[in-house]
Each structure stands twice: as structure tokens, then as C-alpha cells.
Amino acid sequence: MFSNFDYDVIWRSLPYLFQQGMAFTLTLTAIATVFGLILGTLIAMMRLSSSAVLSGFAVSYVNLMRSLPLVLVIFLFYFLMPYVGQWIIRSDQPVQVGAYASTIVTFTLFEAAYFSEIMRAGIQSVPRGQVMAGYAIGLNYREVMRHVVLPQAFRNMLPVIFTQTIVLFQDTSLVYVLSITDFLGAASKVAQRDGRLTEMYLFAALVYFLICFTASFFVKRLQKRISIIR
């Protein structure tokens, strides 16, 4: 079954696969995680705020993003962004936004919705009694958040945030639909050029597996270490 396997094609294309493909995959993951977390925190704060307008906006945004397939959002933003750019800078023509820039914005906005839900769940996972106990010893709202709620929420959230980042890392493979050379895109280009689909796709699967498996192993370790005994 594997007798006519061409290992050489993998060996030959390693530099291309990693220096171009994996480099973009990791860049996209990192940028979308960092900015997604920042934006997600803002959205979570909006959602938990007492203003009906702000929380309403946050709820709609999160629900919208979470109901749509990422592939559709990738397409939508890819075609939408030139017009939005045009509107922002008041240009006469749609702005040229490359596929790479477009996916970075897409993933940031998309993941922000998921991260904000993780934040909200983390904050709400802290029992109400804890908030009351904080008030009871005379802390004000900010101090209760700072010393009682957030430290506990953060411990609950951290492993989930890392897990979501692993999911995000896997999801970046979907940029394939815009013909971008991410890791999978690179593998698939080699596969088609050399007619070596079996080798390249199995190799891609193996690489993704090793990375995600190792990462989730460390997340589990982390989870055990920082969990609070109740």
C-alpha cells in the first residue's frame, strides 16, 4: 500500500512548506489571537455593561459571527473589504486589499466573537457569593473585579483561551479557499504540481497533528497546575 510512496517529494519541499506555508499559518494564528483577545475583551465588557445599547450590539455581533461558517465569512470579507476601505478613505475606487491582509482582518474579527464568549463565561463562572463577600469586606466595584473576580476568572479562562487558539490554528487552514499559501496551501500546491496528493496530504495531517497534540498536552498540564481547589 505504501510501497510506491515518494518520500523525496516531502523532503524536497520542506523549505517551501515551512518557510512560506507554516510561517504564514503561524503569523495569522498569532495576530488573530492577540487582536482577537483585545477586541474580544472589549466586546465582553460591552456585553456585561449596563447599557442596553452596548450589550445589545455585543450580543448581536457575537451571535451573528457564531452562526456563520468561517468559510462564508472569509469570502464575504474578502469581497467586502475593498469597498469598506474605499468608504473609509473616501476613494473613488475600491481599495486593493490583498487576500493576506483580508484574512488577517477576517480571523481577528471572527475569533473576537469566540474569545469574548470565553471571557464572559469566565467572569460569570465566578459565583455571585464571591462578589458579595468582596463587597461585604468593603471593596468597591473596581476592587472586587481586580482582586476577587478577575484573578479567578482568568484561571478559569486561560486553558479555554489556549484551546481556542489551537482551534484557531487549525481553522487557518481554511484560507486555502482564497488560494493563499498557508501550510496546507503550500502542501496542496506541491501535491498538485508533482501529482503527489497522498504523500503531501498525509504529511500535512501528520504535522498538524503533532503540533496540535503537543500544544493540547501542555494546555492540559497547565490546567492542572493553575486550577483552584474548591
Partner: peptide, 19 residues
């Protein structure tokens, strides 16, 4: 907050800060 700090309160479920 100032007044609360002068009124001690003990809860049913203790509510010590676990962290």
C-alpha cells in the same frame, strides 16, 4: 464600601477567596 467594612458578614457558603 466604608460602611460595609465596618459591618462584618459571614456567609452560608463561607465565600473565602479560593485563589
Amino acid at each position: 464600601p466604608k460602611l460595609r467594612s465596618r459591618v462584618g458578614m459571614v456567609f452560608q457558603h463561607f465565600e473565602l477567596f479560593p485563589h
